[in-house]
Amino acid sequence: MPVVTKDIVPLLVQTGASARVAEDIPARFVPGDTVLAKNVNPANHTRLPRYVRGKVGTIMMDHGVFVTPDTAAHGLGEHPQHVYCVRFTAAELWGGDASSKDTVNIDLWDDYLQPA
């Protein structure tokens, strides 16, 4: 395994390690689509927080293709897929008392979503 030495630190820090994957994978959703964040409760690693599960939102951006944390955290490969920014209204997430103006925007992997 490579050892991080002092001389490569500046380059390492400036380059980082993007989770973006250069694979041409078709997007299932486009901005404007209405989607449902799946109501799932995996015991493994996931970046689908409980507070959006089962909620309906709108695709705002398609960020492109990224490594999937749910598999990468368990040695199960990169499983590249699209990540989208999904907008949920505060009322959808928290009910009628929430501000009618406010929104929560969260980046979600394709697998976390289904058409609504």
């Binding site: 395994m1 490579p2 050892v3 991080v4 690693h45 490594v67 944390p69 990468a72 040695g75």
Partner: peptide, 20 residues
């Protein structure tokens, strides 16, 4: 964290999951 990550001993998803 960066030294061991750069050395390839774990990825960031494994790192986060170990915290969880």
């Amino acid at each position: 964290f960066i030294g061991a990550f750069g050395g390839g001993h774990y990825n960031v998803d494994e790192f986060r999951h170990a915290i969880e």
